[in-house]
């Protein structure tokens, strides 16, 4: 049971969250018409064995979207930030 330390709700079981994948990919602007950039954003992933920046939403709590840095090999969680702050 991963323990994710939500910045405002404290440590919670991972099943309080919704997982949404890779957060290291940059989303094109809403009116960006470049096909290649959208293709990379939606389909291409590094899938590293090791530190992975990923999106989780605290759906059972504050409903904030978070960026979690997790080691995909041993599940160690290295950092948790609000996505608003992490991307700013």
């Amino acid at each position: 049971m991963l323990q994710i330390k939500c910045p405002c709700c404290g440590p919670r079981d991972h099943d309080e969250f919704l997982y949404a994948g890779d957060a290291s990919v940059s989303r094109p602007a809403h009116n960006d018409a470049d096909f290649e950039r959208w293709y990379r954003y939606v389909f291409v992933r590094e899938n590293p064995a090791g530190a992975h920046r990923e999106y989780w939403q605290h759906v059972m709590g504050c409903r904030q979207w978070l960026i979690v840095e997790r080691n995909t090999v041993n599940h160690t969680i290295l950092s948790v930030n609000f996505s608003r702050e992490a991307l700013a």
Binding site: A20, S83, R84
Partner: peptide
Amino acid sequence: MSRLEFLLDTAWP
């Protein structure tokens, strides 16, 4: 709901 919140929190803050 989650999708809308995702876009507001990460894509168009």
